[in-house]
Simulated assay, not measured.
Amino acid sequence: MKRILLACSSGMSTSLLVSKMEEVAKNKGIEAKIWAVAQDQAQKEMDKADVLLIGPQMRFLKKKFEALAKEKGIPLDVIDPVAYGRIDGEAVLNKALELIGK
């Protein structure tokens, strides 16, 4: 079971992306728990995740989250703005899996 956490400013804008990612994972036979939270909840939720992807609008917080992610031993990256804008669940899921190391 892959546990993929997405964080964005309010946690709302990524909800559609989560749905698309879950659909792709199901179609590929990948067991995954994918959820989104607001930036202020990300630190608490990181303990439950294998990877953290942050929304492009939070790029400026990457260094802050990197220190926490490193401490917890989970990979982190910023979601590609094009994939985010297109709500490309497959591209974002693939990036998460790549970071986890499949």
Rank of each mutant, 00 (worst) to 15 (best):
L53T: 10
R59M: 01
L76T: 05
P81L: 09
G29Q: 04
D50C: 05
E66G: 05
A96L: 04
I30E: 06
E22H: 02
I79G: 10
G11V: 02
E90D: 12
A96T: 07
V92T: 11
L6F: 14
S10T: 14
K95V: 06
M46S: 05
A7E: 03
E22A: 10
D47C: 03
C8H: 09
D50T: 05
L76A: 03
Q57D: 08
D50H: 15
D47T: 14
I30F: 07
I100L: 03
S9D: 07
R3L: 03
L61A: 10
L97I: 11
E90G: 01
V82I: 15
L97H: 04
I79R: 13
N94L: 00
A69Y: 05
R59E: 12
R59T: 14
P75F: 01
K64P: 01
C8L: 10
D47I: 13
S19I: 00
K62R: 13
A42S: 10
N27H: 09
S19A: 14
A36L: 04
K95L: 14
A25L: 05
I74W: 03
K64S: 13
K44L: 14
D80R: 06
K20N: 15
D80Q: 09
E23T: 11
S9P: 00
L53G: 09
I87T: 14
Y84T: 02
I34H: 04
A96E: 13
M46D: 03
A67M: 12
L17G: 11
V92E: 11
K28A: 09
C8K: 06
V51G: 07
A96N: 12
